[in-house]
Design a protein around this nucleic acid. Structure first.
Lengths: 333, 333
DNA sequence: GGGTCATGTGTGAACGTTAACAAACCGGGT
DNA sequence: ACCCGGTTTGTTAACGTTCACACATGACCC
C-alpha cells in the first residue's frame, strides 16, 4: 500500500480511502491511485484489515453430511449468496451430529473469528448446541425448527406434508401410511406432524409409522413390511419423508409384486433430480433450497449489521407439490 | 495476549512460545501460561498471526456444482482432511464453468490470500484456467486429467471404464454400447477412452456413442434411442458414464418394454447410494471420493511445505467394480 | 476581509501477533 | 574463581491496515 501511495504521490491513508470508497476524495486523485494500484497489481491484505476492523468478512457454516441432496443444495445456495454479498464462507461438515461434534465445530469456527454463523442444524441436539452459542456471535439456524427461540429460516415442513397427504386423500384413498425420518430430526418431526394433522383433519384412521434414516436402504426395509399391508389391501397410499427412502420403497414394492400406482400410491419429499426418472416418476414435494440459502444469508447479514433484532425471526419458505405418476386413485375392488 | 502474560507473570513472547509449542520453555512456566489462558478463555487472533507469518492457514477450493454426488463427496473428504491438518477451507462453487467464471473464482480466493488451492476442475477449460495460475500459489487439481502438467489427484477413470466394459464382454456380450458424459469433461473423456480401449483390445466392433450431460434426463433421452437398438437385438449391453444417467436409461428401457438385465445389461459409474436400490440394483464402478479428498490435501500440504516438487505428481486412486443385478449374460436366442 | 463550513489530504497511533536479537541464568569443566 | 555453551526469558521492531485527529484549501456569507 505504501508503494501505491508513493507512485500515486499521495499518503497511504488516501489509498485506503479510495479502496473503501470513501466519498471525500477528489476524482483526479482517485484515478491516480487506481492507476497505481493497477500498475502494481496491488491487493489489499485482508488479514491486516481484519486485525484493525475486527471483522473477518467470513461466515461460518456448520452442516451435516453435505453428501445428501438437501444439505448440498442448501450449501450451494448459501455459498452463492454469501459471495454475492462479499463474504467468505468457512464450512464444517459433520458426519455424526451430537452435542460434542457440534461443539467442536463451533469451536473451530470461533477460532476463525467468523462474523456470523449459519447452522444447518436439523437435529434437536444440534439445535440445542447451537442455541447455547447465542449472544456471542450472530447465528441463524437453517431448518432449525422452533428450538431455542433463535432466528430460523426453514421450509414449511408441516405444510409440505399436509400437501402430500391431502393429495392422496383427495384422490380417494381411505388413509395414508407414512415412512418417517429419524425421530431426532426436526424436519422428520415436521413432516410427521403435517401428515398426522392432515389425517386427523380428514377424520381418518392414523396407521402405524415406519421409521427410516433417510437412506434408500431404510426405505427398502420399511417397504418390505409395508408390502404385506399393501397385499392385504390395508395400505393403498404412502407418504415417504424423503425421495431416497421413496426410491427404496419403490424397489421393495416392485420385488413384492405390488404395483405403483395401481396398488399403492407414493409421495416423496425433496424432488431430487432423479425423482422424475424413477419407475414410475415420483410425485413429491419440492423444496427451494437455493431460496433458503439466500434468505439465510440475508437474515444473517441483517443481524450482523443491525445487531440482534428484538424478535427472533422465523422465515418460512413454502414447498410445492409436484404431481407425477406415482399417485393415482385407489383401485376400486 | 498481554493479559495472559500479566496473569502468568511472563512476557507476551513467552505466551507466544507456549502457543507455538516452542521447545525452550520450562514446564513450570508453560503450565502457568496454560492456566492463565484457561482462566481468561483466551484465543489467539488469527488475523494478527496471518499478518506477521504471511500464512492464512486457509486452503481454497474451486468446485463445480457441489450438488452432484461426486463433487459433493469429494468436497466432504477434502474438508475432513483439511480440518484434521489444522487448515481452514474456503469454497467457491460454480454453476457454469468456463475460463471467465473460473478466473473470477480464483481471483476471489486470491483476495483471501489462501495458502494453497484445490481445483476440482474436471473440465478442459477449467483445467486450463487453473494451470495458468501455477507458480503464484501451490495448486492441486482433482480429477484434472493430464492438463498443464500440474499435480493431480484423480480416480483412474480409464481403468474403471475398462473394468466395466470387460465385465460385460466377459459375460458374453458381443459388444458394449456407451452413454458418455459431456465432451469437455476430462472424466467423461477418460471413461470413453477406457471403454473404447477395452473394446479394441477385445477386437470387437465399437458402436456409436450417445452423449449426455450427467443428468438423469439426458440418460433417459439417450435411452429412448438405445431402446430401439435393443429391441432390434443390436444393443445387449450398455456402459453408462454415471449412475444418474443409468437411472434415466433404466426408466427409458422400462417404458419401452425392454427388460434389464434379460434384454440389456447395464453398468453405471460412481456407486451413488441409490444404485443398490434401483430396479434392478445397478452394477457400477465405485469411486473412493473420500480417499481422493485426503490424498489431495496431503499432496497440497506437501507442496506448501516443501515448495514445488520437481516432477508434477500424479496420484491415482483405483476404482472398483461393484457387481449387482443389472448385468447378466445375454439371452441366447 | 474575517469567520464558518465543507471538502480533501496527511500524520501518528493503534490492532495482536511473531521474528530477531539480547540478556540473564545455570551447570560443568578447568 | 573463571569462562563456556546451552537453555530460558525479555525487549523491540516489524507485518499492512484503518481510525482519530489535525491541517490545508477554497467557497460562502455577513
Amino acid at each position: 500500500m505504501a508503494d501505491v501511495a508513493r507512485i500515486a504521490g499521495v499518503s497511504h491513508q488516501t489509498v485506503s480511502r479510495v479502496l473503501n470508497h470513501h466519498p471525500n476524495v477528489r476524482a483526479a486523485t482517485r484515478d491516480r491511485v487506481l492507476a497505481a494500484i493497477q500498475e502494481l497489481g496491488y491487493r489489499r491484505n485482508l488479514s491486516a484489515r481484519a486485525l484493525v476492523t475486527r471483522r473477518t468478512n467470513t461466515l461460518g457454516v456448520v452442516a451435516f453430511d453435505t453428501t445428501l441432496y438437501g444439505p448440498a443444495s442448501t450449501l450451494f445456495g448459501l455459498e452463492q449468496a454469501a459471495r454475492d454479498a462479499g463474504y467468505f464462507i468457512s464450512i464444517v461438515s459433520l458426519k455424526t451430529i451430537n452435542r460434542k461434534t457440534v461443539g467442536e465445530a463451533l469451536d473451530y469456527l470461533a477460532a476463525q473469528a467468523v462474523d456470523g454463523l449459519i447452522a444447518i442444524a436439523p437435529q434437536v441436539e444440534a439445535a440445542a448446541a447451537v442455541s447455547a452459542l447465542e449472544g456471542t456471535v450472530p447465528v441463524v439456524a437453517v431448518e432449525g425448527g422452533e428450538a431455542g427461540g433463535m432466528p430460523v429460516v426453514a421450509v414449511d415442513q408441516v405444510h409440505g406434508a399436509e400437501l402430500a397427504t391431502r393429495h392422496l386423500l383427495d384422490l380417494g384413498h381411505r388413509t395414508v401410511w407414512h415412512i418417517a425420518g429419524p425421530v431426532d430430526w426436526l424436519e422428520a418431526e415436521g413432516r410427521r406432524n403435517g401428515w398426522r394433522a392432515a389425517l386427523e383433519a380428514a377424520g381418518v384412521e392414523v396407521p402405524p409409522v415406519a421409521e427410516g434414516d433417510w437412506s434408500p436402504r431404510s426405505g427398502y426395509e420399511a417397504g418390505r413390511r409395508i408390502a404385506d399391508d399393501a397385499r392385504a389391501g390395508r395400505a393403498t397410499a404412502v407418504f415417504v419423508a424423503n425421495d431416497q427412502m421413496a426410491l427404496g420403497l419403490l424397489h421393495a414394492l416392485h420385488e413384492a409384486g405390488v404395483r405403483v400406482p395401481q396398488d399403492v400410491s407414493i409421495v416423496g419429499f425433496d424432488d431430487i433430480p432423479e425423482a422424475e426418472f424413477l419407475t414410475p416418476p415420483l410425485t413429491t414435494v419440492r423444496q427451494d433450497f437455493a431460496e433458503v440459502g439466500r434468505k439465510s444469508i440475508a437474515l444473517l447479514l441483517d443481524l450482523i449489521d443491525t445487531g440482534p433484532s428484538a424478535a427472533a425471526e422465523r422465515i418460512v419458505v413454502p414447498p410445492v407439490l409436484v404431481t407425477r405418476s406415482s399417485t393415482s386413485p385407489p383401485a376400486t375392488i
